[in-house]
Amino acid sequence: MISISNVTKQYKGAPRPALDDVSIEIDKGDFVFLVGTSGSGKSSLLRLMLREDVPSKGSVSVLGENLVAIASRRIPQFRRNIGMVFQDFRLLPNKTIFENIAFSLEVTGASRSKIADKVPAALNLVGLSEKAGRMPNELSGGEQQRVALARAFVDTPALLLADEPTGNLDPATSAEIMRLLEKINEGGTTIVMATHDRGLVDMARKRVVVLDQGRIVRDERGSGYVGQE
């Protein structure tokens, strides 16, 4: 599903590489936490997986695409198979909840009937069916993140990337988002989630990959935030 080998990412003007000789394999159906302090390279790794960036060295392959060599006109097509969720939700403020979710289908050229079919299903999954006509600013943070999740998941992508999805939310709401992510994962979608949330990681007992200063220092299945040493 995801194969990253010997990847180094050096940003111009930075004293040390954001990623330093990183290798990782993620299988279909995995649920992986990327943990580490700010600047440890979690977001850089996610950016490489979404082909928002290319590595300075090494190879990145996601969903069978070699992301170092992919032609730029094929990138949109590639991204349609990936859902992405961010800490700041990134909803379009001038569109309703329904339109926000429909938008990600519209831009890919989905038919009206497909939109009428899939958007309510996604809203139902995140429990926001009755708020379809609301605007994003009328919703709480947790609800907005659920909308973002619905948008990411509406076309049932094979891979869902989440960058600190609970960073702006209180623990109860975070747990709710986590439950949704687990539900999506149970449906077969691979999830890679960068997070600081120690409580979530400890509770979920999933695969944990710890990054420190751009290097992978621990990669353990069924682990917690700190490890079992």
Binding site: P76, Q77, R79, R90, V107
Partner: peptide
């Protein structure tokens, strides 16, 4: 730019954007 960023994120083609 925010909208464009989101469009790119969800896989809109450059032509469409």
């Amino acid at each position: 730019r925010r909208e464009i960023g989101i469009m790119r994120l969800v896989g809109a083609s450059n032509f469409y954007i």
